[in-house]
Structures are given as C-alpha cells and as structure tokens.
Simulated assay, not measured.
Amino acid sequence: MAGFKLSHLVAGFLAVLVGYTSSVAIIFRAIEVVGATQAQANSWMLALGLGMGISGFLLSWLYKMPVLTAWSTPGAALLVISLQGVSLPEATGAFVFCALLLLATGLTGWFETLSRLIPMPIASALLAGILFRFGLEVFTSLQSDLPLVAVLCLTYLLGKRFFPRFGIPAVLAVGIVMSWATGDFHSGEALSLALAKPEFVMPAFSLPVLIGVGLPLYIVTMASQNVPGVAVMQAAGYEKPPVSASLVVTGLTSLILAPFGGYAFNLAAITAAICANEEADPDPRTRYRAALVAGVIYCIVGLFGAAIIGLFLIAPKALIVTVAGLALMGTIGNGLSQALARPEQREAALVTFMTTASGIAFLHIGAPLWALIFGLITEAVLRPRRATA
C-alpha cells in the first residue's frame, strides 16, 4: 500500500462506477431475454465481475500498465437483439465459440501487427470520439440538475487551479456530500448482502446460433471494444501495449467463465482512459496501480452481485455522468491535440473523430470500427495527393 495514492483509489473506484452504471441495464436486459433464473442472473454478475477484476489485475500487474478489461457492452446490446428464441444452453455454446475465436486471435498475434499499422492521429481521434459523449454529458446534465452540476464544475475549476492532483477526488467528494444532503440518494428496496453463487450451464452447440450469435459477438467485441482499447493505451503514451497477451487472457477468461454467464471479455476503452490519464497519476509508470484498485473492486462487486450494483444505481445520474465527464476532460483534450497535430493527416483524423462521435451502426457493428475504416480510407486517398504536391 506504500506506493498507492489517493488518486489511484479514486480513479479505480470511478472506473468501476462508470463501467457498471453505464451498461449494467443492458446486461440485465440480455439476461431477461435469454430466460435466466434469478440464481443464473446472479451467476452472470458474479462471473462478469470476477472476470474483469482478475484478468485486468493480472495484466496490469504483469506489464505495469493500466490494462483494464471489461465486458463487451456492444456485445450485450447485440445479445438483446439476437437471443430472442434462443435457449440458455445454446447461448452458452455461442459464448464458448466466441471465446475460442478471441483466444485464437491472441495466440496468432495478427491483431497486434494490425494495430501497429494505425497512425497515431487516427488512433487519438478514435479515442477522442469515443469519450466525446461523456464530456458532452457534463453540459447536457445541466438541464436535469443545474445546482449539482454547477457546483461540481466550479469545484473542478478550483481544483485545477489550486490542487490539480486532487481535483477529481474533490469533485467526487463534493458531489456525494451535496447529493446526500439534498436527498438525491434513494433506494426503493432493501439490499441483500448475500454472496452470489456460480450456476453452471452446460453449453449446447447449434450451428445457426454459433453463426448468428457467436460470430457476430466476436466481431462486435473485436471491432467496438478491442480496437478502441488499443487506441486508448497508445494515446495515453503506451506505444507497445500487450495486445496479444491481453487477447489470450481475456479469451481464456471468457472460455472458463462462459458456462457461468461470462459471455465475452475484452480490453476496456472508456474505463481504461480513466485509469490511464494524468488525473490517475502524473507518472505513467505507476498508473497501473489505479487499474489494480479497479481490479480488486470489480471482484468485490462481482462477489456481492446485485447488492453492490444496487448501491451504484441509487446515485443520481447527474452525479455519475458529471464526475466521469470531468475526469475525462484531460484525456479528450490530449486526444484532440494529438489527432490534429499533423496537418497532413488532419482530414483523416477529423473523419475518424466525427464518425466515432456520430454513434452510427451498420450490420450490428458500432461507430468505432467504421470510424477507423473511414479514417484509413481518407488517409490512403489523400496520401498520393500530398506526395505529389
């Protein structure tokens, strides 16, 4: 504990807070669609929490980088759509198939080679576009809770001016105190503190389900999660993130936990940015400690399942989105600065940023992959013109 700072604890806690509150409702919806029992639903949350916590802790500890892992949020949204009429054993078989594809991708190492071909301006623009909506929500939340958000923003400005290392912890503390004082924390039901128990589901392999659910789940996880996850690491200054090792670890974790509800794990993007920026630690060599904190908290959340999630969900939304957005301001600014630094690649970076921020989706594939494709096409088309100019 001697090397840990308050900023590590706050960044790790905030990463978990953002990770759960931003997408846990989608997970519950997927659980409902597949017809899982309450015990199986608790098992899903146990598997997802332990999977994220253990894999992220292990990778961060081994490589001394803030390598956070996460469940596949776009994958969960895909499951809500594609699991209609699919039994839980068949869905579990699709999860196993997706895990095998992730593991094979990591073992072959081809994704790491491909990720190095992405120019830094495009990777930075991709990151800025992903995080842009979080920064935007700081200002849109002014409409829903003007007093709270205004006080948080003022605290942020004062913190940046007088105590920059503790600016975000101060924002979080002020927000909690103010929300508590105004009665914004509320819960309609008593929370159970019982530990979640694993529920094993024997996989059943159906070719239509493997092709219709498992393969799209793999594509979405790779395109919408792992690609942005690599971009986050590179934009934070980690030029050689352990891409292949991360895919092996997350693929193996998915394979082990798929029968218990761990449908897909991948590199985190948004939550990783919280632990990889200067707010977490001015020294990039020790930022991994924030990811270690997040890993421990993820495991605790998984063990207590719905009880801890309920505690997260009673917080006012304005508090969550404002603290998250303010914590990511520096990362968004750095991403835009790096994206637009080279005039010869500015158009490609702008196309990447705007496509990502637009949130478009085709063929169940989200904006990040299309942004990368459009940006690289723009770069390739304009490169001959620049060379002959």
Rank of each mutant, 00 (worst) to 15 (best):
L88W: 06
F166D: 09
G305Y: 02
F132S: 15
Y63D: 07
R165M: 08
M45H: 02
L48W: 07
P343C: 04
L88Q: 06
I365M: 07
L127E: 10
S60A: 05
E279T: 08
A77L: 14
G251N: 05
K317Y: 09
I314W: 12
V151C: 13
L107F: 11
I332S: 00
S179D: 06
S187P: 00
S82R: 15
A380K: 11
R161A: 13
T378P: 01
V296H: 00
V24M: 07
R29V: 03
L350K: 11
S337C: 02
N226C: 02
E90T: 04
S23A: 15
R386S: 07
S43K: 05
L6P: 01
I130L: 15
I130R: 01
T286P: 11
F57L: 13
F13M: 13
F362G: 09
A264C: 12
R385M: 14
E347C: 11
A264V: 01
A11Q: 03
F162A: 10
L215Q: 00
L207H: 00
V149W: 01
F57I: 04
V80I: 15
T352D: 12
V177A: 15
A349N: 10
I270S: 11
L88T: 02
L9R: 05
E199M: 12
P216V: 04
Y238E: 06
P164K: 10
E112Y: 02
G159D: 07
Y298A: 12
L255H: 04
G183P: 04
L101F: 03
I122L: 14
V18N: 13
L158E: 09
T388R: 15
F260V: 13
S206W: 04
A2Y: 06
L210D: 03
A307T: 12
N42A: 14
I122K: 05
S358H: 10
Y298F: 15
L267S: 12
L311Y: 14
K64E: 13
L319H: 01
F312C: 08
G212L: 03
A387E: 15
R287V: 10
Q338L: 14
A357D: 10
G261Y: 04
A196Q: 10
T37W: 09
M222W: 04
L328R: 06
E239W: 00
V296M: 06
A99M: 12
F57A: 12
F205C: 00
S55W: 05
I26Q: 03
L195E: 01
L267Y: 12
A273E: 12
F163N: 14
L102P: 01
G3M: 04
P384E: 05
A204V: 02
A357V: 12
W370V: 07
G167F: 11
I256K: 07
F139W: 11
I309G: 06
P66F: 11
G109D: 10
M178E: 12
L215E: 05
C299Q: 08
R285F: 03
L207A: 14
V174D: 11
S224P: 07
L350W: 12
S179W: 05
P216D: 08
C153R: 01
H8L: 09
S87R: 07
F13Y: 08
M1L: 09
T21M: 04
T92A: 08
T21C: 08
R383I: 00
P198M: 02
